[in-house]
Design a protein around this nucleic acid. Structure first.
Lengths: 208, 208, 208, 208
DNA sequence: AATGAATGAGGGTTCATTCAT
DNA sequence: TATGAATGAACCCTCATTCAT
């Protein structure tokens, strides 16, 4: 008999993943005990094992689920198939927005790669690479066409990803700047960093 | 009795710090046991306590030592007191160079803030802020003078730091690009990101 | 409501007993989990509790059932009420045959006495003693009549039981010797061990 | 620096082995927890791990040590190189004596074979086989020379070993019979079981 | 300065069992 | 009768740290 959606089990599994995201992001995978996780969810430690085989399994599930959602969301992003300039802007916008919204998952997926056992690492690494290829391909296309003023698509891709991903380390929704404002700052920086004539476009909008 | 420099003890303490840097960077503070550390050094666990009071003390020592060295080196960097454009270039150049050279210490100092107990955290955080202020001040000065085309000095500072710091996550000395080449790529990106007329300067050099 | 013989429940209970016999013999009671037992049967752990109250109950059931069958079978063995020589031969023959056929149950009933809780232990111990008394009585009668050359009926009984029971530790149906051949070897040894003139009887048969 | 004989560590390790022998024999390996073992020794659980790597290691050590001692003792037994009749008597005498003295180790080495992991099993099994070969070789020699009236040296060896080993399951030093008396009963049974003319020899001694 | 042995807390995981469905 | 989910105790083992030598 199939497990009914919305059954107790489904809800508990979801609660465990959610608690894991909070705790792993806050303290790091190694520093989070299954007891702490269970306490956070409000169940007994042993009950965790009705939903996940091991602690490692919790981590892998969280990471894979996140990366798959990132990729799926990017697939649906408008502008991603336009010319390199618009595609890069779309990517930057998507990336910063997604990362501001899902700071913790992003941070975990980046930081806890080293905590993954071999099998899980391979799966997650493949997903990460897929994502990195997206921006690298945009940059490379733009570089070849002479639109972007960059020396190396790969290094640039890594640098831009690091820059934008870094927003997760300091952004707080209650801070001085809104998510919307931060998005604009980052998109502008990305565009300028590759030498695209972005500022003008904005000014035109304003002027228009 | 003062410990003589060059004594066995001094050498062991240095060896422990070095091993800690390697292991903390590789696995994270929480995932490194005192046993693993001792094994790496080639001594017994209990001998560690002749040199450091606690595991936490090892971490704090490594971080403080690193940050103090960073600041001292930056103090000595030529160009840091010139106009904002040159100062930013100096900073970018210094930062990427230092981070490529000391990848592991940088990574630890960034990642393991959360592993510090309150007292140590305050000390380390102060050192980090000092460093962040250096670039923020340069950017702010440049922004006020209309030299840099940026919206917000603080956000830009964080973004640039994250971007350049990120080099530690993928750079390998044996890779396709040399440290020298990567430095150039990053410096160019930083300068472009703030809208400084850097590329021209390079071209002038070439043209010169 | 009486449980109908042949009902699903009856079949499952039988399957659990059978799986328990295999697993307890193989790994020992303490090393077999209810999960392992359920897996072997092909049901969920909680379903076991529809058929047995506790794990201990499974063990007790298996042992009592086995010992009662042994006693009942021995009651029906021809020759058991004849003179001590024939009675001993009958017992040896019965014992080795039964033990070769039911190696696992025998092994469990012998080894897992210590795993029984008090109440169950008393029941099982009584059954075991009944069986031991059978051979001891035969030996004692033969010793008194001067037919058996033994020093002590009890010690001899224990020794012979141990010897024949030991067959379960190494006999494999696919081995060099058939069950039939092994039976002959053991019966001859038993008869000789008590100084009965058994070999002659065999020779007579051959000569006859 | 070599560990001094008689140091605390040596004594603790010995105490752990001794406690393990008692507990494993009484409850079985799987049913003995490291906590129970530590309690029995009077130390903390974690201290066990200063002396043995794992629980499995405790078992393997106890078994290997015992079997090596058995073999060494048998090597030193007088009469073991005489004619088959005397050699068998020597073996029976040695075996029952040793097994009465070391009931628990014998029982463990026999019963807990299944609890050994592969590597340890191979080592222990080899030692056991060495011992079994001793009696089998004696029996085979005697059979070939027509001294023993047995059908099969291997089956006979297993039967005799089981018979004599079984003494460990019921013998109690405080019981009706002394170890000395039980030895005589068993030796007589062994000799008679193979059709050796042993009783006469005893009578001769008495007559002598 | 280094060691072996000890401690007590806590690690991840499995246990037998219960219960609502 | 069978299930999935829960419990609380217990499992083996490792942890950081201490201390006599």
């Amino acid at each position: 008999m199939a497990r009914r959606v919305g059954s107790t089990g489904e809800k508990t599994a979801r609660a465990i993943r959610d608690a894991a995201i909070v705790l792993f992001a806050e303290r790091g995978y190694a520093a989070v005990s299954m007891r702490a996780l269970a306490d956070h969810v409000g169940i007994q430690v042993s009950a965790l094992y009705n939903h996940f085989e091991t602690k490692q399994d919790v981590l892998a599930t969280v990471m894979v689920e996140h990366l798959e959602e990132v990729l799926a969301s990017w697939e649906a992003m408008p502008g991603r198939n336009d010319d390199p300039e618009r595609a890069l802007e779309a990517f930057a916008r998507f990336h910063v927005r997604y990362h501001v919204d899902r700071q913790r998952e992003v941070f975990i997926s980046f930081m806890e790669l080293r905590s993954l056992e071999d099998d899980n690492f391979r799966v997650v690494e493949a997903l990460r690479k897929s994502y990195e290829h997206e921006i690298r391909d945009i940059l490379e296309t733009g570089r070849k066409r002479g639109i972007f003023d960059i020396k190396d698509a790969h290094v640039t891709a890594m640098a831009l990803l690091a820059m934008v991903t870094g927003v997760t380390t300091w952004f707080k929704p209650t801070g001085r700047l809104s998510a919307q404002e931060i998005e604009e700052v980052y998109v502008a920086m990305v565009m300028q960093a590759v030498g695209a004539d972005y500022q003008t476009a904005i000014d035109q909008k304003k002027a228009g």
